[in-house]
């Protein structure tokens, strides 16, 4: 069977899988960004309870595997009375996992904003919240954008695991088609190429645009 014939028969299924993958990616990315900000700031908090919670979250999610977290959230959490539909369990797991890595990027970026910026904002009598929001965070975002680009590609790759709890994403469709046709090279090969295109021609250029916009805000471009 030529690739052309293959695509005519299975193209629609791969396309619907790609759409689900994109949806998982966007939703997981939103969770990851929010959680990373909260935990990254939390790890720098004066309050030991907030700091402790953030550290425990970060260490648990970075210290175990995404697959373990996914199975735990999907199969074990219902025993605690929290039952998530598989689609939700999927992007929540991926988001929480990547968020723990993102939290370290947030913390590192905040800490690498020069101390003089804190002092200048302090000398203007700004409140701690305003110092963070108006002076430190905007600069920290510029510092952490490049590593976030890599992290978002890891996140895209992570979404492939949701197929293992039967979310019908790209990976899932490739697996299903392979199981019924044994056309493995085509099924998995095309899926690999689609993931590559998403990463290389959508996520990476988007992040580059963000970096350039950020550089303009700093008057550097």
């Amino acid at each position: 069977m030529s690739i052309w014939e293959y695509m005519q028969i299975y193209g629609a299924r791969l396309a619907s899988g790609t759409a689900i993958t994109c949806a998982q990616f966007v939703l997981a990315a939103l969770i990851a960004i929010v959680v990373a900000l909260l935990a990254g700031l939390g790890k720098l908090s004066q309050n030991w309870l907030i700091r402790g919670t953030s550290v425990v979250y970060i260490e648990i999610f970075r210290g175990t595997s995404l697959l373990v977290q996914l199975y735990w959230i999907f199969f074990v959490l219902p025993l605690f009375g929290i039952t998530l539909p598989k689609f939700v369990a999927g992007f929540v797991s991926v988001g929480l996992n990547v968020g723990s890595y993102g939290a370290e990027l947030v913390r590192g970026a905040i800490q690498s904003v020069p101390k003089g910026q804190w002092e200048a904002a302090y000398a203007l009598s700004m409140s701690p919240a305003k110092r963070m929001r108006r002076i430190i965070l905007p600069q920290a975002i510029g510092i952490m954008l490049p590593p976030w680009g890599n992290l978002l590609i890891e996140l895209l790759k992570g979404t492939a695991l949701v197929s293992l709890i039967s979310v019908a994403d790209l990976m899932f469709q490739a697996k299903q088609i392979n199981a019924s046709t044994f056309l493995s090279a085509q099924s998995f090969g095309i899926a690999l190429v689609i993931y590559y295109i998403l990463a290389r021609f959508f996520i990476t250029p988007f992040m580059r645009r963000m970096e350039r916009a950020m550089a303009r805000r700093l008057g550097k471009a």
Partner: peptide, 30 residues
Amino acid sequence: RASIGMCFQHFNLFPHMTALQNCMEGPVQV
């Protein structure tokens, strides 16, 4: 400390704001 102002050896201007925005930041926000 609102009655005290300070200038630093290394200026510490906010890099993501223009000269004017740097000056307006305190009066508006504080």
